[in-house]
């Protein structure tokens, strides 16, 4: 019998047993899924976007389905730092999977303060900085669309923490590689992309927007080709690991991102539809490697052949 392939990858100083992570905002605080599968099988968990104070989020309706996708405008509803540490983190610490906390703030000071307050907390492996939420003014999007602002906020966060730092990038820009290079220069250990693409949907009978927020973020299979293209572009411009996110539903989707050069992937909207999607993807990647006699996942990363 053949040996199982080695699926281990590294993000900064953190080793993941496999390259499959959960995308922030699609996996709650993980305990929501505990009855549905063995959470310790995940490569990493990224929890719901966290702010210093609890946040109520946007008015409903917050979700609308679109062809092969969904628009959301949740607005970063979250329990706030203290409740997270008291009520949510203890469960996450029981898992044999690293937890990354996704953070956002309304200004640089808040980003830096949140990062520094998390810095010495055991059980949090790393931080994903959200500079790309399209749904609220204080969701970081202002930082995520300008290379200089992105540099400044990440520089400030970098000074506040020694933890592994991922920066989540917005696709709602002219050239995502410029933002990626800025945050790399500011000290990011990795970038994850893409966050949702800003979109909207209208009820033609009432002539009202289907989301109370008018616009929302598009996710799901509909955005996968865009995400894949952006990952491929960024991989060529930065040296830090790139984490692919956007419409990944199947092992084949995940493999496309890995071949394009992503070191790991995040599964988002698929968690709502098939809570076992991450496990199906991990198993599917493993099968693919066995079938193709590839001993290590790292042997397939960045192997895109554009010469033909």
């Amino acid at each position: 019998m053949k040996k199982n392939p080695d699926l281990e990858v590294s993000i900064g100083e953190i080793k993941l047993k496999n390259p499959v992570m959960t995308a922030s905002g699609t996996f709650g605080y993980a305990s929501e899924f505990k009855e549905l599968f063995e959470l310790s099988r995940l490569g990493a968990i990224i929890v719901k976007g966290l702010s210093i104070e609890a946040s109520k989020g946007n008015k409903p309706p917050r979700i609308v389905e679109t062809p092969c996708g969904m628009l959301n405008a949740i607005g970063l509803e979250n329990v706030g730092l203290e409740v997270f540490l008291q009520e949510k983190l203890p469960f996450l610490k029981t898992l044999a999977t690293p937890t990354f906390v996704n953070i956002y703030g309304k200004d640089i000071v808040e980003y830096a303060e949140l990062a520094s307050r998390i810095d010495d907390i055991e059980g949090i492996s790393g931080i994903e900085v959200n500079i790309s939420c399209p749904n609220i003014k204080a969701g970081g999007m202002a930082f995520g669309v300008d290379p200089e602002s992105a540099f400044n906020v990440i520089k400030a966060v970098r000074k506040s923490t020694a933890k592994t730092l991922i920066v989540k990038l917005s696709p709602n820009v002219t050239d995502i590689t410029k933002i990626a290079k800025s945050v790399e220069e500011a000290g990011a250990d990795a970038v994850s992309l893409i966050n949702t693409i800003t979109g909207m949907s209208i009820d033609i009978e009432t002539r009202r927007p289907k989301l109370a927020n008018i616009t929302g973020g598009l996710s799901g299979p509909a955005i996968k080709p865009v995400a894949l293209r952006m990952v491929w572009q960024v991989v060529q411009k930065v040296k830090i690991p790139v984490i692919g996110v956007g419409g990944i539903m199947t092992p084949e989707d995940a493999l496309e991102f890995l071949i394009a050069g992503a070191v790991a992937v995040q599964v988002g909207t698929a968690n709502f539809i098939n809570p076992n999607a991450t496990i199906d993807i991990i198993e599917g990647i493993e099968k693919f490697l066995i079938k193709n006699n590839i001993p290590k996942i790292t042997d397939i990363i960045g192997t895109l052949d554009v010469e033909g």
Partner: peptide, 8 residues
């Protein structure tokens, strides 16, 4: 199941 928070 409480993950998306869409049903506010």
């Amino acid at each position: 199941i409480g993950a998306c928070l869409g049903c506010a």
